[in-house]
Amino acid sequence: MTSDEPTLARMMQASQAGDALAYRQLLGALVPLLRRWFRQKVAPADLDDLVQDTVMAVHRRRASWDPARPFLPWLAAIARYRWVDGLRRASVRDHDEYVDDFAVESGESVLGARLGCDRLLALIPSGQAAAIRAVRIDGLSVAEAADRLGQSEALIKVNVHRGLKRLAALVEEG
């Protein structure tokens, strides 16, 4: 079974009807999908929490998916909303450099494109995007980020704060 749009939509429709088996299959498909996608978007220490948070959001808000509409844009909107919320709450942690193994399969590439977080980061000023990547995604301390980016620590903090506000606004613009 693949994570293509028709398959996921079919499983979600069955899940809304109360089919636990289809729902378990759907969740099983979503977890690796979200994990691979989020891997490049958050610090590894925050990855599982964000995936779980997103799946729980899917569970709690599953009635908000309209079977007449495609599933992946719905999932992407929820994942992006939780991602930005996670960025806001993310604590700064040390971690190994992230692994660049972003899988390219039909469903995942569609999801990745629709989540569009790299695109979102490209839409904010480069200094803010770099500060967010360094502090909130790569997990550097403010001092390390300042050293790496050649910005003062105060500017790093300001850029992270302003960048997250802009990201949240961009997410809301759809």
Binding site: S15, Q16, A17, G18, D19, A20, L21, Y23, R24, L27, G28, V31, V55, M56, H59, R62, A63, W65, D66, P67
Partner: peptide, 13 residues
């Protein structure tokens, strides 16, 4: 995930 699936209740879209 098993627990979520076990707790699944039908919902009306």
């Amino acid at each position: 995930l098993d627990q979520l699936a076990a707790d699944l209740a039908p919902v009306r879209p």
